[in-house]
């Protein structure tokens, strides 16, 4: 390299070093997280308790939707049956991801499975919508608040996965309820992310919008 070439190369290198140093000092620090055992001692619910509750809820939702799908098929609502099967798969994935975090925290994932109450397809859809709406608006936001306060990133991740999927489920149930007659007949394709359970009618993205899994990983369920 000629001498007159060295000057600008050095200028570029020192620019890079300046950026490195300034970024390194820009990271802030946060206060120490509250310990879950302190909350437990105070009789408060911990993120582990919330995970167990959510695991139970997702496991029961899975079992319920499997039965609702059978009933929808019997009633001639093939597309609704497909939706219930897709949602059942998503709930199964949520139970799995919650269960992994429970194990990581030293707990045991255990569900108290109840016999699903199966009614007419319309009533089943209404019950499903009610359940998803509660999870979307109340349960998961509360659990997330606590998991964030405890700085439990694994719990935040699995609750975020579930919250995003339940939001889509609620939309789809509402859509089916509003136009139930058009959901009669044969099967309908749904796509479920095997990592986060996100459920869509069309895969119009390259990566899962929630967990970044590649789009070809999505499972087709009908």
């Amino acid at each position: 390299m000629r001498t007159n070439e060295r000057v600008p190369v050095l200028a570029g290198t020192s620019m890079f070093l300046a950026v490195v140093l300034s970024a390194a000092v820009s990271m802030g620090q946060e206060t120490r997280p509250a310990k879950p055992e302190e909350k437990k001692e105070a009789g408060m619910t911990t993120t582990l308790d919330n995970l167990v509750t959510a695991y139970n809820g997702e496991s029961n939702a899975h079992a319920r939707y499997v039965e609702f799908a059978k009933k929808a098929d019997e009633d001639g609502y093939g597309q609704v049956a497909s939706l219930f099967r897709a949602a059942a798969r998503a709930e199964e994935i949520h139970a799995e991801t919650h269960g992994e975090v429970i194990k990581k925290l030293g707990g045991t994932p255990k569900a108290d499975l109840r016999k699903p109450e199966v009614k007419s397809t319309r009533e089943n859809l209404e019950a499903a919508l009610k359940g998803e709406t509660y999870e979307r608006d109340t349960m998961y936001p509360d659990f997330l608040r606590q998991a964030k306060a405890e700085k439990n990133r694994d719990a935040v991740r699995t609750f975020n996965f579930a919250l995003s999927a339940e939001t889509e489920h609620a939309k789809l149930y509402k859509e089916a309820l509003d136009n139930l007659d058009s959901w009669k007949g044969g099967k309908k394709d749904f796509y479920v992310c095997p990592v986060c359970g996100y459920t869509v009618v069309k895969v119009d993205f390259e990566k899962c919008p929630v967990c970044s899994a590649p789009k070809d990983k999505y499972e087709k369920i009908n």
Partner: peptide, 26 residues
Amino acid sequence: LVSPLFVLLGFLPKVGRGFALAGLVL
């Protein structure tokens, strides 16, 4: 965002090529 500045300085006579190379490194 800073590398195009070096690309621009690359048009200078004599020292230009060094700046152009620095732009590539960035």
